[in-house]
């Protein structure tokens, strides 16, 4: 198990889990951010929503792992699967996406909205046609940061997605991500060479993902300032 051979199945597993997690959490995060910036007035409701998001950001990944294990693996009978893993991760990266989207929406100048309203657009039309396109690079940054966090996460995935080394054929299959694979190789001393190799791929891919995110963020700040 990992002593010989390559890490192709774990790369596939990582991509599956990270992408599905982002697909689930982006709509939730973007809607929450739209609520916070465009719909709600500052008050008890926004306080509750912000409190939830901030607390969620502070919760350790191992707690998410425990939670995902009880809710998805045991209670909903998804078993150790890509679905359980990505649902758990989507909850974990939700605060990241909310925060970056909120900042991106706030950066869209208020005059844009005024022009849109003056042309007779409704609130939703303004958001859909003016605010969201303007905030898109910022939202993409949040999504990429979310992918980066999912790829690097171990504790939340190991108890929800399991450790199968086969190439997954459906979202109900168990799969191992690169970081879980690396943890198992290094911790159980299966093969130090393979552990170093996996770590190199893992770190390089995460650095690339984050570089890409910061590059987009840099372009956004340059655009509006």
């Amino acid at each position: 198990m990992g002593r010989a051979g390559g890490i192709f199945p774990t790369i596939i597993g990582t991509i599956f889990i990270a992408v599905i997690a982002v697909l689930i959490s982006t709509p939730l995060g973007v809607c929450t951010a739209i609520f916070l910036t465009e719909y709600a007035k500052e008050g008890i409701m926004t306080k509750i929503v912000r409190f939830g998001s901030e607390c969620l950001a502070g919760i350790p990944s191992i707690i998410f792992g425990l939670f995902g294990f009880v809710l998805f693996v045991e209670y909903l009978h998804f078993g150790w699967s890509i679905l359980s893993g990505s649902l758990t991760l989507s909850f974990m990266i939700l605060p990241t996406i909310i925060r970056t989207t909120e900042e991106a929406i706030k950066a869209v100048p208020y005059s844009f909205r005024e022009v849109s309203y003056s042309l007779g657009a409704t609130k939703w039309q303004t958001i859909k046609k003016v605010v969201l396109p303007g905030a898109l690079p910022g939202i993409v940054t949040g999504v990429i940061l979310g992918i980066g966090r999912s790829v690097g996460e171990t504790a939340a995935v190991i108890f929800t997605a399991g450790g199968s080394l086969n190439i997954p054929s459906s979202i109900f299959d168990s799969s191992r991500t690169m970081s879980v694979h690396f943890y198992i190789l290094a911790r159980e001393g299966i093969s130090m060479n393979n552990a170093y190799g996996t770590a190199a791929i893992l770190v390089i891919s995460i650095l690339l993902i984050n570089f890409f995110a910061y590059w987009i963020m840099h372009k956004v700040t340059a655009k509006y300032s």
Partner: peptide, 30 residues
Amino acid sequence: MSTKDKLITCVIYTVAFSAISILLLITIFI
């Protein structure tokens, strides 16, 4: 508001509470 706008407003108000609901779910299950 038009029906569509009403619907969207309802959806956004509902989804906005996902973070706090997840927090509650975590507390309850753990």
